[in-house]
Structure formats: C-alpha cells, structure tokens
Simulated scan of single mutants.
Amino acid sequence: MNDNQQNAPAGLALVGDIGGTNARFALWRGGRLDAIEVLACADYPRIEDAAREYLRRIDRPLGDIHSVCLACAGPVGEGDFRFTNNHWVIDRQKFRAELGLSHLLLVNDFSSMAWATVSLDAKHLVCVREGTPQKDRARLIIGPGTGLGVSSLLPTAGGGWEVLPCEGGHVDLPVTSERDFAIWQQLRELHGHVSAERVLCGRGLENLYRISCGIDGVQPKCASAAEIGELAMAGDPYADKVLEHFFLWLARVAGNAALTVGALGGVYITGGIVPRFLDRFRQSGFAEAFATRGKTSGPYLAQVPVWVMTAEHPGLFGAGVALEQALKSGR
C-alpha cells in the first residue's frame, strides 16, 4: 500500500456502469452512491482515461481510490474484457497498476442489477403483483431495455448471495395464442430464430407494433419505441393494445424463467421500458398472465411477488453491493 492509500478516506471506492455509449461513475461508501457523473465513451481513448477524468471532475485525487467495481455490458470472464459496442478493452493487470488499485472487480452489467436487489430501499421498489417471497429461495431479475436482460440471485450459507449471469433474453419466444403465432411467423421470416428479445426490448416493441399493424391493416402512426409508448399514453387505442401485448409476453417469459430457476424469492423487473410506463403496467394483465398456466406450474407461481425497480442508477448501486460482498469474502 502506498502513502496515498494510507491517507485515503476509509471505505471509499469507485464504481462504474459501462455501456456501449455512456460510462456512469460514482463514489461508493457506507452503502451509498455519491458524485454521479456520466461520460461519453467515444470521448476517451481508454477506460483508464475516462476514470481519471471522472476523478478530476469531482476533485478527488487518484490516491483516494483503492477499490473499483465496474459493471460491463457483455459476458465477463476471468481474463481481459473487450466491450461489444465500444472501443474500450479492460486489461485487468494494467488497469490496476495504472490506477494504483488494491482490488478490481468486473461484473456483467445485468448482474449488477441483481446485486442491487439485495439492498435497495423499499421506496425504490413498486409491487405490481402481491405474494409472499421465500427468503431462502432464488430471485429473478429481468429487464427489457436496449435488449432483454435476465439474471438470478441465489442465497448462500452465511447470509451472502451469489449472482448467476445468463443469456435468458435469447430463449425461444413463447407462443400461446393464434395472435402470437401470426406475429411469430413473421418474425421467423425476418430473423430465423425468434428469441424473446425479438419482442421484449425497444426494437422488439417496434417489431411488435409494425407487424401488428400489418396483420390488422392499420396504418402505422409512429416508428420508434418511445413514440409507440407516448402514443399509447396519449390514449391511442391501437398503440395501447400493442403495449398490452408486450406486457403479456413479458409475463409469459418472466413466468417461464421463474419456473426454471425456482424464483420463489420474487421477481424484479428493471430496464428502460417498464418503469417509464409504470402506471399503465400496473393496470395491465401482467400479474394474472404471469401465473396463468398449467395445474402444476400455476400454483407454483401463485405466491411469487413481482416488483418494478425504480431506482435511478441501479447498475451503479449493484456494483457497490457486489464490491462490498467481494471485499468481505476476500475475493
């Protein structure tokens, strides 16, 4: 440990939530975020440069930081990390050496959403389906946004948690009605394999609206997911019908995932779409469709509660929680 680290504020860490376009940074101490800043990835040749710029902006010397957790968009392994949608590469050894770190933790960006559920205040969770969570069972985290993220969280001995990252957004899209099948057929013609993400994300909502208009002979009034949502909120009955179908498909995919991982600890919905239309989502058929299925699976899901996460920066918060647990466990 160098002299700067000896004089650094106790427990102060740097956390980041790094996507293809933006890098969000914050300080983490005592279970709280502070000094949140958003930087454009394209403005910096390397992630080390962005981290240094963040600390400069908040007037913190590099020596104050000795632990870092970065939530990264993409599958995180043991080696170096190359971002899918920007030019940055994280060489773990070089990153630690250049910034003088004693600890560097990389986690998948959606895994950080799972970590966030461990410590989020109740004010950041809106219940959309009543139930009784079982504390010793898995939790499911699912979120339609730019893509469809899915992960699960398992309780471990000693009161800890283990995140299981996955690629659950790419499972087959479930088909449960003739209407579903008609849409699925057109998606298959366009894309071959029809994953859940083909419908349950921003571009997926656009797919759903465009194909639905074609099936029904309706002239489209908008093109983007944001426009579809705004039109639905403004009272357009057709856009609202499409948004309802989106929510019902989310219920089916979330219910299937909950059955697969045994998520009797509850389901947490995040991402950029559902929280934006929270009031409409609460009025939708999601809660009923989630557990309306066979005589065995229906009762299994009957008492599984569902919440929507409304925290402004859950990825940053989850990175902080993940770092805390890693430091306590000595990983």
Rank of each mutant, 00 (worst) to 15 (best):
A257K: 15
R276L: 06
R52W: 14
H87Q: 07
Q325E: 13
S102F: 11
C201K: 00
L101M: 12
S102L: 11
F277M: 07
P61Q: 04
H87I: 04
L278C: 02
I18L: 07
A51H: 03
G214E: 13
A196I: 12
T146M: 02
L120T: 09
A35E: 14
E324C: 02
G31L: 09
F110W: 06
E227V: 10
L148K: 01
V38E: 14
G318C: 09
T132W: 13
A326C: 08
L154W: 14
V218G: 00
L105P: 01
D43H: 15
P305W: 14
G168Y: 08
M1P: 07
I65L: 10
R179M: 08
A289W: 12
H66F: 13
G320T: 05
E189A: 07
L164A: 05
R56E: 10
G16N: 02
Y209R: 01
F246E: 04
N86T: 05
P220C: 03
G320H: 06
G145W: 04
D3Y: 15
A326F: 04
L27V: 07
Q219H: 10
V242A: 07
F181I: 04
C166H: 12
Q134L: 11
L231R: 10
R96L: 05
G214M: 09
A157D: 14
W307G: 00
H193M: 08
L173N: 02
R29H: 14
A23M: 10
R32C: 04
A35R: 14
D121Q: 14
G11L: 10
N7Q: 14
W307S: 01
D216Y: 15
G320Q: 06
H313S: 08
G30L: 12
R52H: 12
R252A: 04
T176I: 14
D34V: 07
F290K: 01
D17P: 00
D49W: 14
E288Q: 13
V175I: 12
D172V: 15
H191M: 07
G30Q: 13
V15T: 07
R24W: 03
V150N: 04
R82G: 02
Q5V: 12
A114D: 02
C166S: 13
R60W: 09
N22I: 11
M233E: 11
T156Y: 12
C201H: 02
L120H: 03
G158Q: 11
C41A: 14
N256F: 08
S177N: 12
S152M: 06
A322L: 08
A10E: 15
V126D: 04
W184C: 02
G149A: 11
G147C: 06
V128E: 00
V89P: 00
A40I: 14
G271S: 01
R179P: 02
R280M: 08
R198A: 08
V150D: 09
E312F: 08
V274E: 00
A26Q: 03
Y209V: 01
R56I: 05
L14P: 00
P314K: 05
G79D: 07
A157M: 15
E130A: 11
G159L: 07
R29E: 10
H170T: 09
I215R: 03
A51G: 05
F83E: 00
H191N: 08
S67A: 11
A234P: 03
P174F: 15
G202M: 09
G192K: 06
V15A: 02
P75K: 13
N108F: 03
